[in-house]
Design a protein around this nucleic acid. Sequence first.
DNA 1: TGGGTGACACAAA
DNA 2: CTTTGTGCCACCC
Length: 126
Amino acid sequence: MSMAMQKSSRTPTKNSKEEPASFFETVYAIVRKIPRGRITTYGAIAEAAGTRLSARMVGWAMNAAGHAPVRVPAHRVVNRNGMLTGRQHFATPTLMQELLEQEGVKVENDQVVEFEKLFWAPPVKS
DNA sequence: TGGGTGACACAAA
DNA sequence: CTTTGTGCCACCC
């Protein structure tokens, strides 16, 4: 799959304040607010960010989150099915599951157990 | 400027 | 049930 675009450099646009300079940072801010042991979905984040029509962008932002200035708990973000779709993008394919289990989130067959119960609804972006 | 990209979501077959 | 296809939008070169 991934052949071109391996560098993917992004513009940090660091602001002294918490003000997100771009949609990416908005997503990062939301993801960082996910409580430990909880999870959310790309769609929920997208909705909170104001782009519910495109959950894809959240995944795209997560892709860039790997080189974000602040570590983003991307392992707490799963797809609508509660599946760890992004595990393949972590340092190791199993890292995402390991991190989740470290926080008490049980994962079976690449899917979060009781995903609906652990689901955390991100606050709506003002 | 324009085009391509995608860690999703949803509908249809 | 699984598979296939389309839409969607912000960001990067």
